[in-house]
Design a binder for these strands. Structure first.
Lengths: 277, 277
DNA sequence: CGCGAGATTGACTCGGGTCAATAGTAGTGG
DNA sequence: CCACTACTATTGACCCGAGTCAATCTCGCG
């Protein structure tokens, strides 16, 4: 199989399970992860805890389409994505979805529930998923005796905040083309860091979901992808993306950004979009 | 004085200092706050700590225009706004500012520095400010022995994240009018909760800064305020805002929101903007 | 094979960005 | 006190990027 990620339906679970045996251990029908596994997953320097082998966190599985938590539901634990793809959404007073993120391996879920003790967003599995359950109480108690874990928690929360800020920056200042380009670059990076191909991958979400995430309509997303395809930066076919010119995607500049102080702003975007390299 | 907030120039410092004596205590030329003061400021149930009178946190003053911290600067402490107004900004690779927030009394600054140990945003005083310095090390050490403080920290971090998410939702889905309206409502609420008038206040930031914050141009902000003024929802005069119809501002609906599933979308915004009540 | 969800494209519209001229305000210094 | 200067705010004219509406097209599935 050349597929860069776990895909489709039936065969998945087997792949999932067999591959996850590396990090987790089978135990009464479910999987368990140690603190070390979790730190690795979060890219946090491992904290040597004496009895860390005893500290196991249970895994939970969700099928594509299932909700991990909903808005207003009582908060009691965080989740770490062990495998699979999800989306988190906000739902406004008229029932419109606003996609906030597309969590995947190593991402954390549920942080928004800490302060009010209610989840303020909804997490939905886009594919079959294997999540590690982190009971918040257990976690904080543990952190009290293990300074490094405590730091890890602060780090993760802060990191989420910085990510969200970057998102605001993007929504506030980038053109549609730049947003889509950056979205692709980010995905590419994520896949690379998960050990998959950074050049060839499948989107796990619909155009509608991408649009919501980027503050655009699904038509604009579709058209922009087609345009990138047109000029050879990528090859799109439905959910399949092949990146042909990562640099061009990275260099896609914002349109002369309005509230820009600097005088330079003469170049047309069309030209900048795909520089003559 | 009927002024709803500290305003203008010279007399300020005196007002500032005399009013802050309530919560802080003068000490070798600076002010200090106890943990209780801080919890009150953050709207967090106070944690009775035996020796809390010994635990004092120093204040720092900044004049309008001064930077509290800059991007890339080494992180070592958080700040709580005791009085004054600030802005936090992100600066992109071309030097463009993106305003992230307008911190005021009770808000916390610097959270984005925790994970990388470098501030990832810049905080600038928009007026003379009095901030409480919270050395992060000291804070976390303290939290280790005082569970409630520990919870408070988690709460504050999570709260910031939720706020940022709401911002993303707004930027992703609301029209210019709705953004400006919501901005005014939020300010009104903030002022009310600080004990000032919610109906009559001065903006502390320029149109340019508001525009950046809302993902709009300064012209659009100006025009929208003028439009609200036109139909009598508010009275604007430069930086002075008087809110005449808070409900109308709150009810300003998003434009038929594109990625909206629901069929209802016939009503023109013009009509909805200022409902026939 | 036909159905339905998702994706693509085209034609049209308009919200809001761009450019530019004008006016109000504040701070400075003679 | 008043000019001089530098911001900041307001407005108008224009236009383009992206949203809206709608007609196919594709693909997986029962």
């Amino acid at each position: 199989m050349l597929h860069t990620q776990i895909s489709k339906t039936k065969p998945i679970l087997q792949i999932l399970h067999s591959s996850s045996l590396a990090a987790g251990r089978q135990c009464q029908g479910r999987l368990w992860s140690s603190l070390k596994d979790i730190c690795d997953l979060l890219h946090i320097p491992f904290v040597a805890v004496c009895d860390d082998e005893d500290l196991l966190f249970q895994h939970v599985q969700f099928k594509a389409g299932q909700r991990v938590h909903t808005i207003g539901q009582a908060f009691d634990s965080l989740y770490i994505v062990h495998s699979g793809f999800l989306k988190t959404v906000l739902i406004d007073e008229y029932g419109n979805e606003q996609v906030l993120s597309f969590p995947m391996k190593g991402d954390i879920l549920g942080v928004d529930g800490i302060n009010s003790r209610l989840y303020s967003s909804e997490a939905v599995a886009l594919s079959d998923c294997d999540l590690i359950l982190l009971p918040f109480k257990k976690l904080t108690t543990l952190a009290r005796t293990h300074v490094e874990l405590e730091n890890a928690i602060y780090d993760v929360l802060s990191r989420e905040l910085v990510r969200e800020q970057a998102m605001v920056g993007m929504l506030g200042a980038l053109s549609a083309e730049a947003r889509v380009a950056r979205f692709l670059v980010t995905l590419s990076d994520r896949f690379a860091s998960m050990g998959y191909s950074s050049k060839f991958f499948n989107l796990r979400m619909t155009r509608h979901e991408i649009g919501s995430y980027l503050g655009l309509t699904l038509e604009t997303v579709s058209r922009t992808l087609s345009a990138f395809n047109e000029i050879g930066m990528i090859v799109v076919n439905q959910r399949t993306i092949e990146i042909k010119d990562l640099e061009a995607l990275k260099n896609l500049r914002r349109l002369p950004p309005s509230r820009n102080r600097s005088k330079q702003s003469k170049e047309k975007l069309a030209a900048v979009a795909y520089p003559v390299q």
